[in-house]
Design a protein around this nucleic acid. Structure first.
Lengths: 250, 250
DNA sequence: CGGGCCGTTGACACAAATCAATGTCCGTGG
DNA sequence: CCACGGACATTGATTTGTGTCAACGGCCCG
């Protein structure tokens, strides 16, 4: 077990343990998974549509987007993955990609072979369950994404996305202000929300009016409650730190 | 093992076996799951937002929608479930509902306790994997739903939905025409696509122009290729009958 | 110095929402 | 049997949010 890998995968173990209960042995088994780190340039599609992959990808650094392309050429981002996320754990059970994965900014990823993931899931049912739960959370985020692009107005939709990302990045308030790096262009934000970059730009202007700014890839939220209200944001769907008693008693 | 239950759950086994390889023993274990059938009236929410459930739901008959409600009162349907679908297998690993489940029409459902589902998943890793795969397909459908409401125009979006449902219902062409029952109102279609019922009505008029009609809850598609082209539909994401050699060699 | 990429702004077009009225069907009760 | 009410479908007039097109400015990087 390489120390390097152990420290890399520690983030993954930590993520799983935030929602599932794993014994030391089970945690160690995940630490020991073989993993191959690689750096991906911005805008590079490291999984293409229709491609059959033999590994799942864990994000160590950067920002990864799941892209779906439609005939007319416009692109829709259906998921964003930040450090600590598995982008496609489901590829273990469905290895042919139905959407592409692209690094939105220069990113470092870890490729973990399906064979190893399947082996650990088969040996430890609790690990299989933790994987399943992790994917379930991704589905919940995706369902909220549908709501966001489906029936919220642009400013509300953008507010919701910023709230979600602040939570997922576990941003802490500094004197009432939440500030974090968010390396997306306005055009990419448009692809995520089904809007044009022009409209994103104007909508950011509106958010400025309630104390939320996005300049130079830095989000700054001065009034969290107001942003949540505008975005109709309820963090419940993120299932943060759901590992209480009911999980132990199974 | 009751014959009644066996015939009910046979649909579920069939579904799982269309994408996963299960031994006879594993199939029998699913057949033997305890299940409680119940009839749900149209418009009744049988799982409410925030509720913690102890069972997953299988649709025997009717049509079930997954609903998300936003502050302003408008509703967004994020998934449709037809007979043969599990609506919330993921509730085994995340029992607190982050969206509601409602019968769109009078429906018959089967409630299967989480304890039983978890037990069979723990005993048979291949079953756990089949469950996981089934959920992965739901995620792929959800991702397409994002694309649909996010960046397609109304007529394209509606066309895509009708194509998807025709495939999921496994509709066969009759003299080049696909015809099937689809018990949704125009208002519900609007909730699914993030459009108003008025606009759905007008858009259905447009689809009439390319030989697709929806009258009296019956969809009739005279020109499949044209509808697919309009909806930019590629059925690949539905993962129909993905159970070939690569799955056996694992 | 020059060429891209990104952000910003304005004028205009258009798709879809909204508001409102009317029509149709169907179940219910007088 | 007919009158009524409610849910759903249909249609028209108008408004509005967002897209499109276009131009310009800042900035980084080669």
């Amino acid at each position: 077990m390489s120390t390097l890998f152990k420290s890399n995968l520690a983030l993954f173990v930590e993520r799983l343990c935030s929602r599932s209960v794993l014994s030391q042995e089970e945690q160690d088994a995940i630490h020991s998974l073989p993993a191959h780190a690689s750096q991906i340039d911005a805008h590079f599609d490291f999984v293409r549509l229709g491609e059959t992959v033999a590994y799942s990808t864990f994000v160590l650094d950067g920002l990864v987007g799941r892209f779906d392309q439609i005939g007319s050429g416009s692109r829709q981002i259906t998921a964003l993955h930040i450090p600590g996320d598995m982008t496609d754990l489901h590829s273990v059970v469905a290895p042919t990609a139905t959407s592409a994965l692209e690094a939105l900014t220069t990113s470092t990823i870890l490729k973990i072979p399906h064979t190893a993931l399947r082996a650990v899931a088969r040996k430890y049912p609790a690990v299989a369950e933790a994987f399943w739960r992790d994917e379930a959370v991704n589905s919940m985020i995706l369902a909220q994404w549908v709501v966001n692009v489906g029936c919220r107005a642009a400013k509300s939709s953008l507010a919701h996305l910023l709230c979600e990302m602040a939570c997922r990045y576990k941003v802490e308030a500094d004197a009432g202000t939440f500030r974090f790096q968010f390396p997306m262009t306005q055009s990419q934000l448009g692809d995520a929300l089904g809007l044009t970059s022009v409209h994103i730009n104007r909508t950011l202007g509106v958010l400025g009016g309630i104390g939320t700014s996005f300049k130079g890839q830095t989000v700054c939220i001065e009034d969290w409650d107001k942003l949540c209200a505008l975005g109709d944001f309820d963090r419940g769907y993120l299932q943060e730190n759901i590992r209480p008693a009911q999980m132990l008693a199974r």
